[in-house]
Nucleic acid binder design. Structure first.
Length: 830
RNA sequence: GCGGGAGUGGCGGAAUUGGCAGACGCGCUGGAUUUAGGAUCCAGUGUCGAGAGACGUAGGGGUUCAAGUCCCCUCUCCCGCACCA
């Protein structure tokens, strides 16, 4: 009995795949080596920035994190293997409501809960073998971070990009509290079920609408690099439309009222006029008129019911006639003015000209209020009869000078006419609103403004930053419509920096989206206490080459980060105008067809999976399950299977009997060709983010190597070592523990993470025989082994001579032969 | 309603420019080895058919020597927006 046999038949610990032991062995080694440290200024490698969306520290990591970080890690580790200095940082998005709610429940400072969770997640990330640069960790709730939030806010303030105004917020009259949109369920308070109303508060805004055009236009840079879906969602969110403003004189009012329309060409079809019920204009037009009482009642019902009814589709149109008339500027017609909630107060000017024939909403209203419908664009059907407004292009009628024109010409013509009489012009409108950043909550960045009765709003001087949060102790964190910080009297009362008189701090905190809008810049040096970030470092690292995260942030976070980048560009601090060159939205991890949740009873705990299958098997399962942007159903995939494969690969490293450094050129050619072809395939797959395919190629190579050892060239052949070393490096992207252990068993020093991607020898990619398929009538009848450089004529001759082809052609006459040498011949016969 | 994406074996999924459909894996079947196996190794596995063969990428039509891939129509599912004038 040979020694190898005895090992195989009596497995001892040295030859058993043991993930827990590997974790034990390699984690301390990696801590020591820090193979992913990226901060050496002398590092000669070209740089790349791979960024995972940073987590919210609400408990331990879950399966969703495991997927996202597995994918980000493949990318980061791949570029390290390809010889890049990869910046792959992590931090925590640590401010926000969940911490505050947990604090209220546990009656302790939100910081305690937050830092506990950060420690837990950090330990899990280490175990999960994320290739993060641990020198660059940041927490947004640390003063050394939010200090620069405040600095940025003041920069924006001085540039006129941060301002205060009154605005309506969701208000629960029972709980006396402001509610976030997420806390409003079906128009009702999620806690007490009372109907949510609106309340006016004076709040801080960022003027993102100033950047609407650039946010839209710069998306051309992202085309093909970001998911099309995300770009589309952003476009819709910004919602740019072009049309015209048209002035209408209103009876009993000095100033005309401007309306915005995308169809000024239908102006002759206007038969009434509508103002938003909840607009100031409506209140003004109703005041002291015959409709005053009716309007007041209507407004009450609108305010009460709006959020509930918003969700109803096809809700009937309601409104109040205000006993006023608007004058159509082109024909002098008197149009009755209505107030209705189908017109939005905060879009356009809050007033519209109603053209029922060509706008469905106007038509619905006209039918409800028995108002005339006048067709001004020819169509096959009559809206007054069908109840369907026609919105297509067509020839204009009943439109005076516009008669006979098409849509575009008519628009051009009417705008010329209006601007000539100074009654209107082209106009652009956006759905995007300015960004409300005020939060009346404790656990966020204090807004660095001091309110002085004589000086007004006074920015906190830079040398006084950060404005630190006062201790939570003694403060009532329950939401009540004003910030808990208001009760911290020692903190609130300060001397005005400008005049020295007693003044008060602003007590609002910032939306946490502010924190995450620039964190990718802070990673360049999270501990720099002289500046938010170093513009030279930004020049070196930006833009982020690859951003990885969930599609949940498709709009807000990504839009805000793009906005900040443009502001910083305008300040001369960054060169780029777009922060994230490429975006990958990973799918979600589900269980049995639906999102995992405790209440549904289908929650899979990451730590349990790691205990049972090992870190590498879980990571491999995530990566191999399918395309990264697809959802994974954990019930459909097999972490046990992944572990089995890893063990199979790992055993190869124990079978290699040649020494490290043996010249591969002397090895078995068949295996060598397989190795180089599959490494090449895997490389192409990783480059195009088809990680599941890259894993499949690695599996093929494992199978080929197993076969070569058992029934081919044998374990001592140098080609076996070459193949197993290639497998090890390929696996290092997905299964770092297994790969490190294999690398060591192969006689190398750690870390395999820096071993370098195998160099593909192009010469080994050329095949000396290829299989040619011979089809008759499109059906495969024969396969020929031919030289890759065979001539078309030779191939045709060979094909026609093959027995199955001759049989298939019996009784038929050849019409045409298509030859695509060297892979295919198709014979057409009849 | 509007917009977008997707339908391939029992399952997850592969498939340069149109050129062998089902790579790789899970599951299953059989075999070898084993005291044992949730270990390992080997073989098989789209459907129908005993077989040759026929059929087969949601359904229907089309272009082509050739279609999962291109064009038209229909169905189903998922996602986003939802009175934005």
């Amino acid at each position: 009995m040979s020694e190898a046999d005895s090992v195989a038949s009596q497995p001892d610990n040295a030859n058993v795949y043991d993930p827990a032991a590997m974790q034990e062995r390699w984690l301390p080694v990696w801590d020591e080596l820090a193979p992913f440290r990226s901060g050496d200024p002398e590092d000669p490698r070209p740089s790349k920035y791979v960024l995972d969306m940073f987590p919210y520290p609400s408990g331990d990591l879950h399966m969703g994190h495991a997927e996202a970080y597995a994918l980000g890690d493949v990318i980061a580790r791949y570029w390290v293997q390809r010889g890049f200095n990869v910046l792959h940082p992590i931090g925590w998005d640590a401010f926000g409501l969940p911490a505050e709610n947990a604090a209220i429940k546990r009656k302790e400072d939100p910081a305690v809960w937050t830092y506990e969770n950060i420690a837990t997640q950090k330990a899990s990330m280490r175990r999960y073998a994320c290739s993060f640069d641990w020198d660059r960790v940041l927490n947004t709730c640390d003063p050394e971070y939010y200090r620069w939030n405040q600095w940025l806010f003041l920069q924006m303030y001085s540039r006129g990009l941060a301002y205060r105004k009154d605005s309506a917020v969701n208000w629960c009259p029972t709980d006396q509290t402001v509610l976030a949109n997420e806390q409003v369920v079906d128009g009702k308070c999620e806690r007490c079920d009372s109907v949510v109303t609106k309340k006016k508060l004076n709040q801080w805004y960022l003027r993102i609408t100033d950047y609407a055009d650039r946010l839209l236009d710069d998306m051309s840079q992202l085309e093909g690099q970001w998911p099309e879906k995300v770009l589309l969602m952003q476009r819709n969110w910004i919602g740019r439309s072009t049309g015209a403003n048209v002035d209408f004189a209103i009876s009993g009012r000095d100033e005309p009222v401007t309306v915005y329309t995308t169809r000024p060409d239908t102006l002759y079809g206007a038969t009434f006029f509508v103002v938003a019920a909840d607009s100031e204009l409506a209140a003004e037009l109703a005041a002291d008129g015959p409709a005053e009482v009716e309007f007041a009642e209507y407004l009450e019902t609108v305010k009460k019911a709006s959020d509930i009814d918003r969700l109803a589709t096809d809700r009937p149109k309601t409104g109040v006639f205000l006993h006023r008339y608007a004058t159509n500027p082109v024909n002098g017609e008197q149009l009755p003015v209505y107030a209705s909630d189908y017109v939005l107060a905060d879009y356009g000017t809050g007033a519209v000209m109603a053209v029922p024939a060509h706008d469905q909403r106007d038509l619905d209203f006209a039918r409800a209020f028995d108002l005339p419908v006048r067709v001004v664009v020819e169509a096959d059907t009559d809206p007054a009869v069908t109840g369907e407004a026609t919105a297509d292009d067509g020839i204009h009628v009943n439109s005076g000078p516009l008669d006979g024109l098409g849509k575009e010409e008519a628009i051009k013509s009417i705008i010329e006419q209006l601007s000539a009489q100074d009654g209107g012009d082209t106009a652009v409108n956006y759905r995007l609103r300015d960004w409300l950043i005020s939060r009346q909550r404790y656990w966020g960045t204090p807004i660095p403004i001091i309110h002085c009765s004589t000086c007004g709003e006074v920015p906190v001087p830079q040398e006084q930053l950060p404005v630190k949060l006062p201790p939570a102790e003694g403060l009532d964190l329950q939401p009540k419509g004003s910030s808990p910080l208001g009760a911290a009297t020692d903190w609130v009362n300060v001397a005005c920096p400008s005049c020295g008189q007693p003044a008060k701090r602003d007590t609002d905190t910032m939306d946490t989206f502010f924190d995450s809008s620039w964190y990718f810049l802070r990673f360049l040096d999270p501990h720099d206490d002289a500046q938010a970030f170093d513009p030279d470092q930004a020049r070196k690292w930006l833009p982020v080459d690859q951003y990885v995260g969930g599609v949940t942030h498709a709009i807000l976070h990504l839009l805000y980060a793009r906005f900040f980048t443009k502001v910083l560009h305008d300040m001369g601090l960054v060169e780029v105008v777009e922060p994230f060159a490429r975006l990958l939205n990973q799918g979600m991890v589900q269980m049995d067809g639906s999102a995992m949740s405790k209440s549904r009873g289908n929650l899979v705990r990451l730590s349990d999976e790691l205990d049972v299958h090992g870190v590498d098997a879980v990571r491999l399962t995530m990566v191999f399950a399918g395309p990264p942007e697809d959802d994974i159903d954990w019930g459909d995939v097999s972490a046990a299977g992944a572990k089995k494969f890893l063990a199979r690969a790992w055993r190869l490293s124990g079978d290699v009997t040649s020494d490290p450094g043996v010249p591969a050129a002397d090895g078995d050619m068949e295996l060598r060709k397989a190795t180089h072809r599959l490494v090449n395939d895997a490389q192409i797959a990783v480059d195009s983010h088809r990680f599941n395919v890259a894993v499949a190629k690695t599996m093929e190579l494992v199978n080929a190597t197993r076969k070569a050892i058992d029934s081919g060239c044998g374990p001592v052949d140098p080609a076996v070592r070459e193949a197993v070393e290639a497998i090890t490096v390929m696996l290092s992207l997905v299964a770092p523990y297994t790969a490190e252990d294999m690398w060591s068993r192969l006689g190398h020093q750690p870390s395999v993470a820096r071993a370098g991607w195998p160099v593909v020898d192009e010469a080994l990619l050329v095949q000396d025989v290829v299989t040619c398929v011979v089809q008759v009538q499109g059906k495969v009848r024969a396969r020929l082994e031919v030289a890759p450089d065979i001539s078309a004529a030779d191939l045709e001759r060979l094909a026609l001579a093959a027995d199955p082809v001759i049989n298939a052609l019996e009784g038929l006459e050849i019409r045409k032969v298509i030859v695509r040498e060297p892979k295919l011949v198709n014979i057409v016969a009849s």
